[in-house]
Amino acid sequence: MDNTVRVSKPYNLAAIRGLVRDAFTGDELRRFCQDRHKFRPILDHFGPSFSFVQMIDAVIEQCQVHALLPDLAAAIEEANPRQYERHLPHLFEESSSPRLNGVLPSTGTRDGGLLPVPTAPAPPAHFVDRQAELTRLVSCLAAGAPTATTALQGMGGTGKTALVKKVAAEAAGFFPGGVLWTTLGPQPDPFHILASWAIAAGGDVRSYTDLFHRAAAVRSLLASRARMLAILDDAWEYDCPFLLMQNALPANTSVLVTTRDADLAKQLRCRVENLDVLGEKDALALIENLIGLLDPY
């Protein structure tokens, strides 16, 4: 097995967005994700009334989180070579030196495959100001109490993940130990998550085959760091986030969970912040921002 770290030039996300837009229609993009195993989980992030632009954003966001941008580009090259060739000159940012493409090495154990780096993605370019919610969340997480556990709950497509990316950026100064970002989804793999957390903390727990022993080892590694913020995005079920919160994170860690499920937020004993759909004024502002992103060149 190849245990080296993939290295490449960083992708130009505006160009990737333009490539996806020009290579597919909305229905074609859905079929593209459905027909490819790696991209099929992205369909879970499409809201029922998502526009084509929102679908594109969801695809790119999830490819960033799971280090799938190279796979996305390669799949589009195969599916629509003409558009790929047209966009190819713009796909990579100019850089004097290559950098890690969002992945960590694998040791070929139970955690086969490359591990995502658990750092917070940048807020989306089309973010619409939700200042009241942003202020409340940052204040709660940065509060004097040693532990702040908060859940941001709302229906799919209300912008939970976009808001939490903004929270991570705004709150980072309160957490000298850093921000751990993990996207859970409907079928999270706690072994894989714990392995990536350990490597981010400078250790390696992949020799631990018992889940609770692995979680305890991660907790020991993280306990040596200054206060951290852990973000568990898109929680669907109870067991994985509960394990991470109770067994892997040090007691002084602030935790922010996003979920569509209000009952799950209460089960996790979180302070619940509800996120409603955008009001008319903010919705119009979002549409204007999205229209401005349609032509990246």
Rank of each mutant, 00 (worst) to 15 (best):
K9N: 04
N12K: 07
A14G: 11
D22H: 10
F24S: 01
T25K: 01
R30Y: 00
R30H: 09
R31L: 13
Q34L: 14
A58C: 05
A67C: 11
L69I: 15
E78A: 15
Y84R: 07
E85P: 00
L104G: 02
L104V: 01
P105T: 11
P105Q: 05
T109F: 08
R110D: 13
L114M: 08
V117F: 05
P118V: 01
P123Q: 05
H126G: 03
R130A: 02
R136H: 08
A145F: 01
P146W: 00
P146F: 00
L152F: 03
L152P: 00
K160M: 10
A162I: 02
A169Y: 02
E170C: 06
F175C: 08
W181R: 13
P188W: 07
A195T: 07
V205H: 09
S207L: 04
S207G: 12
D210I: 04
A217P: 06
A223E: 14
S224R: 12
R225G: 01
R227Q: 09
M228C: 12
L232D: 04
D233N: 11
D233R: 02
E237A: 14
C240P: 03
F242L: 11
L244D: 08
T253L: 05
S254F: 08
L256T: 10
D276C: 09
K281D: 12
L284A: 15
N289L: 15
L294Q: 15
L294D: 12
L294V: 09
Y297H: 10
